[in-house]
Amino acid sequence: MGLKGKLISSVEVKCGGHLFHDILHAKTHHISNISPSKVKSFEIHEGETVDVGSIVQWTYNDDGKDKTCKQVIEAIDHETKTITWKVIGGDLLELYDSFTIISSCDHLWTTWTFLYEKKTEDTLEPLVFLAYVLHVTKEIENHLLK
């Protein structure tokens, strides 16, 4: 069994991928209001907006525990509505040597790709975190459909 992994999940979003991408890129700070039980806060530590090179931090609740995830924005492609978020600090790095999250949106789909390297062979695949991200995705979709 290898230490490197890749998980991909696509979910239909009836609100349209362009609106979902807009939330992730330009209105990211609203996600804690949209999904307050899951996302406690979003802060930009370096940079003024979610842009390439910006450093951001999420505080989130996972299974009743507050956790953090600090990321640098590695790439943004507005044409394909893709954002690459590389984890540089926080709880995920306790289990993984590296972790990158790629969000991409098209007409009716949002796709999440996790690229990661586990610290040990015994480390589980990040399926629980993927379920968490998909839950927040559905909450954002419900907000956008109101």
Rank of each mutant, 00 (worst) to 15 (best):
S32G: 04
G5D: 11
L124G: 10
P126N: 14
L108Q: 05
V87N: 10
K70Q: 12
S37D: 14
K70L: 04
L115E: 11
M1N: 02
T110Y: 06
K67C: 11
E74H: 05
L24Y: 12
L145I: 07
L93S: 06
S54R: 05
S32M: 02
T82S: 12
I76H: 04
C15A: 14
I44H: 09
A26P: 00
F42W: 12
V56L: 03
V50L: 08
S32I: 02
L19C: 05
D22P: 13
E117W: 02
V11K: 11
I88P: 02
C15D: 14
I8Y: 03
T28W: 06
S32E: 07
L124A: 08
I55M: 10
H25C: 07
S35F: 01
L19S: 13
Q57W: 00
L134V: 05
N61S: 13
T68N: 13
Y116W: 10
G16A: 13
S41M: 02
G16R: 05
I140M: 12
P126V: 09
L127S: 13
I8E: 11
H107L: 00
G5Y: 02
P126F: 09
F114M: 12
W112Y: 14
I102M: 00
D63E: 11
T82C: 07
A26W: 05
S37V: 10
L95E: 07
G89A: 08
H45V: 02
S9N: 07
T113K: 11
L115R: 05
H18C: 06
G64W: 04
Q71V: 06
T59I: 06
S103E: 05
I83W: 06
D62M: 01
K81G: 12
H25L: 14
S9V: 00
V136H: 04
K86W: 03
L93I: 11
S37F: 08
E12S: 09
T123A: 08
F129R: 08
V56H: 01
N142V: 07
D106P: 10
L144Q: 04
V72I: 14
V133K: 01
H107R: 10
C105P: 00
I34Y: 09
L130R: 13
L108V: 08
H135P: 14
